[in-house]
Simulated assay, not measured.
Amino acid sequence: MRKKILFPAFFLIAAAIVYRLSSFSPELVSFSGPTMGTTYTVKFYTTEQVSNPWDLKEDVDDVLIKVNKLMSTYDPTSELSEFNKLPAGQSADISKDMAYVVDRALLISEMTSGEYDVTVGPLVNLWGFGPGKREDKVPSQASIDEAKERVGYEYLTLSDQRLAKEKDIYVDLSSIAKGYGVDEVARVLRNKGIESYLVEVGGEISSQGVKPDGSPWKIAIESPAGGHSMAERILSLDDVAVATSGDYRNYFEKNGVRYSHTINPVTGKPITHRLVSVTVIDKTTTMADGLATAITVLGPERGLAFAQDNGISAYLLVKTDFGFEELYSDAFKSYLK
């Protein structure tokens, strides 16, 4: 289980430019930058409460730096990395931010009976999709079995802001931290009086409000066949969060076999089914992010059933011999109009 999409899984319909209307009209402001091994883009319409909208870029950068400093496995001094260094049987006080994200990740781990597992880190690292030099090699079964011994969300306990480990486990929040980053940026905008915005980090998106002409924000679900130049579906958004999980960008090939960055904690190996993209719409990008990864691990049939059983708004693209098949839950149908 791993999601580190280096390029957004969605492209924004509106171009990244700034429109200045009259002094009494809302102004569309857009800025972007690097974060979490990918990029972010923020678009919003100003209100009378915002005196200098460009000052918000510094606030956005600060909050994304904070999230990365707390939850990155690539930073050996992050709060998460310091916890992972603790031996079995130890615990630590953690930030409110990380406690919230770990709590959400543990919830999804329980919902999937461990097929999404927040402690999948040892397997992610073994397959070369974690911190350190990537070697693109297939590990031995003995190495996989050894890494699986260090995986198990049931050995991780969260009590308020106290996190404890019963075994020498390694927590990896890469499948959910970007979503939390989006939620935090959106919170900054709302606190500054922004009523209409669209925030995107590595393909995870949060939106609120409508444009001055009353039209909704729109995004396109990227086609795995055409990349950023081809849209599979176009969605109209209003006060929702969207996340995608896909295995068609981050992988390696060895002896003609393709190995996805998405690891199944139960098998200890990359997924092998034909589900190539999952889009989830939820109230928070944090949950949408984690749930999209969970459904990707489960695969097309069980993933769709999981979404149906839990009332999750999910859209799945499955590779066939002749292209891609669309699958979607009942909760997603209203977004297909």
Rank of each mutant, 00 (worst) to 15 (best):
V138T: 10
L126M: 08
T112P: 07
E135Y: 14
Y153Q: 05
G128T: 08
V151K: 00
E135S: 12
D136I: 12
Y155N: 12
P131I: 05
V151R: 00
D136F: 12
A142L: 13
T119E: 01
K133A: 09
S113R: 12
D136P: 08
T119Y: 00
W127G: 01
P122Y: 04
F129A: 03
T157W: 06
V118Y: 00
G132N: 11
V151I: 03
K137S: 10
F129I: 01
A147C: 11
E115K: 07
P139N: 13
G152M: 06
D117H: 00
V118W: 00
V118K: 01
G128R: 02
T112S: 09
A142Q: 12
L123K: 08
A147N: 05
K133D: 07
D136T: 15
K137D: 06
G132H: 11
G121K: 00
L156S: 03
V118D: 00
G128V: 07
S143A: 11
E149Q: 15
N125D: 08
R134V: 15
T112W: 05
Y116S: 07
E154L: 12
E149C: 15
S113V: 12
L156E: 02
V138C: 09
A142F: 14
Y116G: 03
Y153F: 10
K137E: 11
E146A: 13
E146N: 08
R134K: 15
I144T: 11
E154Q: 13
T157H: 11
G132T: 09
V118G: 02
G114C: 04
I144N: 08
E135F: 15
D117G: 02
A142D: 14
T112A: 07
L123Q: 04
D117L: 02
G132W: 03
Q141N: 14
W127H: 04
V118R: 01
A147V: 07
P131S: 06
R134I: 14
V151F: 01
T112D: 05
F129R: 02
